[in-house]
Simulated assay, not measured.
Amino acid sequence: MKKRKLEVAVISDVHLGTYECHADELITYLNSIQPAILILNGDIVDESRTAKDYFPPSHIKVLRKLLSMASKGTEMYYITGNHDATLRKFSGTSLGTMKVVDKLVLQIDGKLAWFFHGDIFDVSPQNAKRIARLGSFGYKLLITLNRFGNWLSKKRGKERFSFSKKMEKNTKRDSKYMSDFEQSAIDLAVDKGYDYVVCGHTHQPKKEEHETKNGRCLYLNSGDWVEHLTALEYSFKRWKIYKYNHDKLSPFFADEEIKEMDMKELIATILKKNKPSKDKESID
């Protein structure tokens, strides 16, 4: 079966290394698409759980598939999240066509799309919005605050902050938090002149146009591969939420060579294919 060609695909909150991750379904999805750009918008690997020695073959296959896609020319961005925050020390580095960043701006068909995971709002959507307006310094400050908060939680014997779990505990209160989260992202995007703002983190897939007194912006959230099994796709000048349980095609099987290649071979292949970048800009 022919793969669907996409200009941009976005996945987030896969949480590899956890029992809740639907790795097999994600492999099926990745084998069904051929994106020019693939954005991994945070929490792809759950570093807080991998220490428990749970990383089955299906989860390794996802990593191999991603590396294979990068080796075959797919431009790939790994945007760091709160569950894979260790990667933030490598922000700004590249591994062939795969780049590690904290946030990203792409120009798509003449419009600007702003991508970030969304955990900067864990401090408080309103306070985070004020700090983030300080620019790059403010964004880094928010990341540092959240990292310190999670370190403190660990010291006290508690789990790091998980917005999805927080939502389950208090629906009414967190419904307001969700609204504040989205509005804060929209306000910041409008202030910065972006047409699209694309987040993950909340595990809630969404596509919604917002208008403020200062302008308009489309809010997008890629959802997760824990419960909703969703992704964002851009093609033919429009965004769509892909829902695996509704939109899935007949299963695609992994390329035969992936089964034979180990991780070192895949990484070596990527490095050989480091091509010049296209029309895009990464925020410092």
Rank of each mutant, 00 (worst) to 15 (best):
G223W: 00
G223H: 01
G223K: 00
G223L: 01
D224T: 02
W225P: 01
W225K: 09
W225A: 08
W225Q: 03
W225V: 04
W225C: 05
W225G: 06
W225N: 04
V226N: 04
V226K: 12
V226P: 00
V226E: 02
E227V: 13
H228P: 02
H228C: 14
H228E: 14
H228Q: 15
H228T: 14
H228Y: 02
H228S: 14
H228M: 09
L229G: 00
L229C: 11
T230M: 06
T230C: 11
T230W: 01
A231M: 05
A231N: 02
L232I: 05
L232A: 11
L232E: 03
E233T: 08
E233W: 07
E233S: 02
E233D: 08
E233Q: 10
E233C: 06
Y234C: 04
Y234W: 11
Y234G: 05
Y234E: 06
Y234Q: 02
Y234K: 00
S235T: 10
S235F: 03
S235W: 00
S235R: 14
S235I: 05
S235A: 12
F236A: 15
F236Y: 10
F236T: 11
F236N: 15
F236M: 13
K237V: 03
K237D: 15
K237I: 01
K237M: 09
K237L: 06
K237P: 07
K237Y: 10
R238C: 09
R238W: 04
R238T: 14
R238Q: 15
R238E: 13
W239K: 06
W239F: 08
W239H: 08
W239P: 06
K240M: 04
K240E: 04
K240S: 07
I241C: 03
I241T: 12
Y242F: 15
Y242Q: 07
Y242M: 09
Y242S: 07
Y242C: 11
Y242R: 06
K243R: 12
K243N: 15
K243T: 08
K243V: 04
K243G: 02
K243H: 13
Y244E: 07
Y244P: 01
Y244S: 02
N245C: 07
N245M: 10
N245P: 01
H246W: 07
H246D: 05
H246P: 00
H246G: 00
D247G: 11
D247T: 06
K248H: 13
K248G: 00
L249Q: 13
L249M: 08
L249R: 02
L249S: 12
L249I: 01
L249V: 05
L249G: 12
S250Y: 04
S250F: 05
S250K: 09
S250I: 07
S250M: 11
F252N: 13
F252S: 15
F252R: 06
F252L: 04
F252T: 08
F252E: 03
F253I: 14
F253C: 11
